[in-house]
Design a protein around this nucleic acid. Structure first.
Length: 476
RNA sequence: GGCGGUAUAGCCAAGUGGUAAGGCCGAGCUCUGCAAAAGCUCUAUCCCCAGUUCGAAUCUGGGUGCCGCCUCCA
């Protein structure tokens, strides 16, 4: 079954077709002038999962994500703190990369920076001027929106309906109020580069056009980013790239919904945000990913402190189930001739879950539904586990269960947190010993002592459960 | 003023024409020395109004609420 994605450009779901085996992805990255917040984590986690899923489906993936390291706010912050813009941006780029690594997000193949692509940017602006899509005035270069009839096609805006200048002053040098800067003349104290139009620096949108073209060419498969980038950023990117090359910039435009805090968009400029590092200090990364992936990527997502607590229990139970399976299966594969009814049933459920997972992900990367499918299998597995007899058959089936969970929930979604119950190889035998002793005590009906052991272990964050198959333990 | 999104149980959340996935919370039960874990059962007619249809949460029209974008923003 084919993958379908919702394309902002056409405002409908489309069948995904890659030009070849390699799927090219450009995701708009951050402007590094402040700490990485949870709003940034959303697209990163989503694209991390999309990449891993596509790879699992047999595609190769090439992912480019930019850093806009030349920007008004970086400069402002630098002046404020008596540092260079470069010091500010590299500090927060580092913060971003660390935060993403801490979330288990795989790195992009390339992280191009504006400051390292000035020649490409100038070259692109020259092309636009030569083709009559841009004009230079007093050291600034503006894009002429009227020269690009398709302007507004991504955000579905009509030029005469847009209200430029409602809250900021329109530069009198612009021919049309909606024209936007490709190159900004240098102001005193700002970082600047030489150009045919004098010293200056790139405008906001041009870097993505220049860098995506350099690394991915034209009409690459995916262009992603937050919904707040649709206009003007992505609209302007399309105008610049397509005016210059006369070819489509990207095939599929995917936009993730905003993450809200206190009913308002999480935003650096509003001071309305929670950093990734703050959250990860309190919660495991797998839980944070689970929370993000429990919602469809296009819908808005509400965050407050209790949100993670609310989903934590369901997530924990899921992990417990996988952990239980892991602790029960044996490495060796005994020859199995035929399966008993219960085993066959479970094996069938495993295959069914896999198909459901694929169907969900193929439908515009519906991770929420994919997770629901995994939960259904969980319930069947727990049921099976509650009264199964260890046998080569059960071992064979449970190995399949584990493999699937590990693949889908672990490798692709990254929501699986399997305890390392074997700290330096000592914990395991030690626990065996303690539990063996405690079992003896219980046989002798010395429950007082048995309970004392269990309570003491709990104080060490080790939970002991007595099951019909014997005692079992896990970290709290 | 324009554009876009959204409204599903106490909470979170899938579902775009065929009679409401999944999770949390809650209630009851099973198992159990106790506890925990797990299992089973129960818990909504889908913002409002009108329409299309044999049939609508799902389509159309109107209304209301909330959010985003039009200004830096993932």
């Amino acid at each position: 079954m084919a993958i379908q994605v919702y394309n902002t450009l056409t405002r409908k779901k489309e069948v995904f077709e890659a030009k070849n085996e390699r799927v090219n992805i450009y995701v708009c990255g951050v402007t590094p002038y402040d700490e990485t917040h949870l709003g940034h984590a959303r697209p990163s986690v989503i694209w991390d999962v999309i990449k891993k899923y596509l790879r699992w489906q047999g595609y190769q993936v090439y992912h480019v994500q930019n850093f806009t390291d030349i920007d008004d706010k970086i400069i402002a912050r630098a002046l404020n703190e008596g540092k260079t813009a470069q010091e500010i941006s590299s500090y927060y780029i580092q913060d971003y990369l660390e935060s993403m690594a801490a979330l288990g997000v795989e790195e992009a193949d390339v992280y191009p920076k504006v400051s390292e692509h000035i020649p490409e940017i100038i070259g692109l602006i020259e092309v636009l001027i030569a083709k009559g899509h841009a004009y230079a005035v007093n050291g600034n270069v503006f894009f002429d929106v009227l020269s690009f009839p398709e302007y507004g096609k991504l955000s579905n805006q009509k030029l005469d309906q847009l209200q430029a200048g409602t809250r900021f002053e329109v530069d009198p040098d612009k021919r049309n109020p909606m024209d936007f800067a490709l190159w900004k003349a240098a102001k005193p104290g700002e970082p600047a580069w030489d150009s045919p139009w004098g010293k200056g620096r790139p405008g906001w949108h041009i870097e993505c056009s220049a860098m995506s073209q350099k690394y991915l060419g034209c009409e690459f498969e995916f262009h992603g980013g937050g919904a707040d980038l649709v206009f003007p950023h992505h609209e302007n990117e399309i105008a610049q790239s397509e005016a210059a090359t006369s070819k489509p910039l990207a095939k599929y435009w995917l936009h993730n919904g905003m993450l809200n805090l206190k009913n308002a968009k999480m935003s650096k400029s509003e001071g309305n945000f929670v950093t990734v590092k703050q959250v990860l200090a309190k919660y495991p990364k797998e839980l944070v990913r689970f929370y993000i992936l429990s919602n469809h990527y296009r819908s808005e997502l509400e965050f407050h402190d209790s949100k993670l607590d609310e989903v934590a229990r369901g997530w924990q139970r899921f992990n417990d189930c996988v952990q239980k399976v892991a602790s029960v299966i044996k490495e060796q594969q005994d020859p199995v001739e035929e399966l008993a009814a219960l085993d066959a049933q479970l094996l069938e459920a495993v295959e069914e879950t896999k198909q459901q997972f694929i169907a969900a992900m193929n439908d515009d990367f519906n991770t929420a539904l994919a997770i629901a499918n995994l939960f259904e299998l969980q319930s069947k597995v727990n049921s099976y586990l509650a009264n199964f007899e260890p046998s080569p058959m059960s071992n064979c089936v449970l190995q399949q269960v584990y493999k699937l969970f590990k693949q889908l929930a672990g490798d692709i979604l990254g929501v699986l947190k399997l305890d390392s119950t074997n700290v330096e190889g000592l914990t395991e035998p030690l626990m065996d010993l303690i539990l063996r002793l405690r079992t003896e005590l219980r046989k002798e009906k010395n429950y007082q002592l048995a309970d004392m052991i269990r309570d003491s272990l709990e104080e060490l964050n080790i939970l002991v459960e007595d099951t019909p198959q014997g005692p079992r333990w896990k970290f709290k």
